[in-house]
Each structure stands twice: as C-alpha cells, then as structure tokens.
Write a protein that binds this DNA or RNA. Structure first.
Lengths: 227, 227
DNA sequence: CTTGTTAATATTGAATTCATAATTACTTTT
DNA sequence: AAAAGTAATTATGAATTCAATATTAACAAG
C-alpha cells in the first residue's frame, strides 16, 4: 500500500524553493522576490505565494507582514536546538524499532552495518556516510511511527544546508563506529531502553554541532560555513 | 524582547478553522467546502485556500488533489504515535530545563507543584489539571529550545480534539502525583538524566492513550469518543 | 551636507475572473 | 428498472486584476 503522492503546483514550487535554499542559491537572510521566482518557475503568484506560506510553517523561510519573505538565517543556537531535537527523535525511533522490527529487517541492518565497517576500515568516508545514513533511516522506518518520521524529515530539511562532513577527526570516527557496534547489538537484543539511550547520546548527532562550534563561536549567523 | 506576532489574514483564517476542528464543528472526515467557509468568515478564496495549505502541512487536514480538503480522521494508532512523540519531547524538555533553569524558575514550579498537591488532596480535578498543564508548560519554556516548543505545540494541536479527562481513576491519579513528586525533586537536583527519564515515562503521557484504548480497541476512527 | 517631506514606484495582500476537473442529474438503451 | 453514457452543474486550480502598504527617489529646508 504505497502512498498517493499528490502533485499540486504549490507543493512542486515549495520543493523547488526548498532546493534553492538547500543549495545556497537563495542566500540566508535574502529577501525572496515573488516576481523573480514566478518568472523563474513560470507560474503565477497564487501557487507561489501558497508555497511561501507552506515553507514558512515548515520553518525554512519567514514571512514579514507586508514586506515579503526571507530565507531563515540559521544561528548556531537554532542548529544546536534542532540537533538536540533530532537526537531525541532518533532515541524514540530506536525504542520503537526494537518493539516492531522483524528479524529480516534486523538482518538487513546488520548487513548495512557490516558493509559500513568495511568502508570504515578502508577509510572510505563517502560510502561510510551513505551506509550510516541508510542505517539510521532503516531504524526510523522500523519505528512504524509516521508522525515521528514526518517530524524528523522536517527537522532534517531545516538544517540540511549547513550539514557537512569535512572536519571528521579519526577519534570522532572511531567513537562513532563504536556507538554503531553497541547500536546493532542492542537492536539484535531488542533492548529498547538501551538502543534509545545510545541513539540519544550518539556521537553523530552531536558531531556536526561540535564541528560547527569549532568554526563558529558566537551566536551570529553561521552561513559562512556553508561554502 | 517579545516576539512580533504577524496577523496575516491567512493565519487568522487557519486558526479559526483549527478552532472549528478542535470543537468538532467541522467533523472528522468531513469535506471542507471552500465557499461555505468563505461566506462564514467573510473572506475571499485566496486567503482561505492559503490557510488550508498551511493546515495541511500542520497535519490537521488533508488535501485531495482536485477534490478539496477534509478534516483528518484520527485513528487510535495516529493518536498513540503522537503521544509517544510528545512523551519523547517532554523528556528532552526536562533534560534541557535542568541545564538552563534558574533558581527562581524552579521555585515558581515548586509553588505550582505544592498548589497542585493541595487540589489533589481536595480532589479538585479541574484545578489540578490546569496546574499540571502549567508545570509541564513551565518546564518546556525553561528548556529554552524554541524549535522544541514549536513542535510540541503542533503535536498538541493535532490531538486536542480527542483530549478529555473524565475517566481518570484514583489509582492512575495517585501514580501521576507520585511521578510529579519525583519530577520536582529531580528538577531541584538538576538531574537532567533522571528528569528526562521520568518525563518520558510519565503516566500522564500514557494515561489518555490508555483511556482511549479502553474505549476504542480497534484501529478505526475514534471520533465517537469526542462527544 | 544632512535631515525631513512628499511624490513616484514597486511590492505585497486580497478579490475576482478564467480554465479545468469532478460531481451530479438526466437521458437513453437494454 | 438497472446500467451506461452524456450533458449540466458545481468545485477546484491557477491567472489576473484591483487595492493597500512599503520602498525608493526627488526635492526642499535647515
């Protein structure tokens, strides 16, 4: 039973604007010109303005009454707050996954995990990250909580544009892999409390924040990092 | 530094529709007639439709392409999923509160707590619930995480219309009060791990779900409860 | 040269209009 | 009478138009 994905024009436009923001083509704090985007997308102002309202409730832009919209300017605090939240949600996803996951799903995650270890040994950062992402994604899916997945996806969207993985130190990496070892063990034991705890404290959740903190030390906008 | 609250027409309309849903004047599963609401509110279709899009992203209604909108039909599972999420967020709010809360704020919560105990002894359910709400609200505020507050408020909105408090048994109530005793102690000790744990497991979070489960045992729509 | 005022322009907010898809009502056929 | 097909109606999707607000430019006074 695959979900019907509605394709309204406004939703299409909202996604496209989201992409522009993610890739920095719409700069943080930049004022969004309705006319300009209308021409760019070849749509009228009605669906575009609907998209802007949606993006505002999703937290990507902010609406200034009678003065249009602007891209949300991410501060260090905002990013940290968002990551704290995501860590809590991951913790919950772990707890729920333990309750609902099938043996086959666990086996699949184990395979991803083993493959990830392999690429860790080969110091293949790119593939490591992709497999890492897939593992967390799988646990989230196994939680079988759609509201949770929706929320997580929204939060993830908000901070996507400052996500990066250049400054990963070996020590951090070693620790992250150890966390993952504990994770898979807790999952196979279906120890929901433990897995929840591990995921809430998981280094990956805090890593990027820590890295950002190394680059930005005040609470000003941190968009310079994005380049 | 109080926030500027923007008063767009679409936001006003969205709130009004939200109220209609909360109070059951727009029934679950009911199709939403644009024309009807336009006349009711005395606005044109443009701001109304913008409001509908926003309400859809907020999870209160769903949009059927070319077939208008309808009020989300809450299932038992959806409500349970939402409460699970809210419990996790409360847990996080507790952890963060311990890190940020001032002595004065703790003292204020202690006063609320004592007052709540008093009304518990007098079996004054109504006032008890109001003080209970204020305590949780205060902890959430003390977390100083605006993203968290925003999410919690959204989730709360979604399940408001099935919230009720008639079936509270004495045993449940006693246990909830005990939880609160432990909560305030953990807060005063600024034991973030403990407070987080208590709030995640807090009976109040599960209580209403359990109560609902007593009324509804399948996964069908549970709107009959609302009356 | 700066500050304050006013006119011109541009942009946003909301209503209306037009186009398209879905629903309903009505035939027509079997 | 039931089913199928077609016309009429209604509702939604999107563009356009009109109105209100904000921004910019020009200008005058100090």
């Amino acid at each position: 039973m695959t979900k019907i994905l509605q394709r309204n024009l406004y939703r299409e436009v909202a996604d496209r604007i989201g992409d522009l923001i993610e890739h920095g083509e719409l700069a943080p704090g930049e004022r969004i010109s309705e006319k300009q985007l209308c021409e760019k997308f070849g749509v009228s102002r009605t669906p575009l303005r609907e998209a802007l309202k949606v993006l505002a409730t999703e937290g990507l832009i902010e609406l200034l009454p009678n003065r249009g919209a602007r891209v949300v300017r991410l501060t260090f605090k905002k990013v940290k707050d968002t990551y704290d939240l995501m860590a809590a949600l991951e913790g919950l996803s772990g707890e729920l996954a333990c309750q609902h996951i099938s043996d086959a799903e666990i086996a699949a995650i184990r395979r991803l995990h083993n493959s990830m270890l392999e690429h860790y040994r080969q110091q293949d950062l790119k593939t490591y990250f992709e497999l890492n992402r897939q593992i967390h994604e799988s646990i989230l899916a196994a939680s079988q909580n759609e509201v949770l997945q929706e929320m997580y996806s929204n939060l993830s969207q908000r901070v996507k544009r400052v996500r990066y993985s250049k400054k990963m130190t070996q020590a951090f990496w070693d620790r992250a892999v150890k966390d993952h070892e504990n994770m898979i063990n807790a999952l196979e034991a279906r120890d929901s409390q433990l897995l929840g705890q591990i995921l809430r404290d998981h280094l990956c959740n805090k890593l990027e924040v820590a890295t950002l903190a190394g680059v930005i030390d005040d609470d000003g906008p941190l968009e310079a990092v994005n380049g």
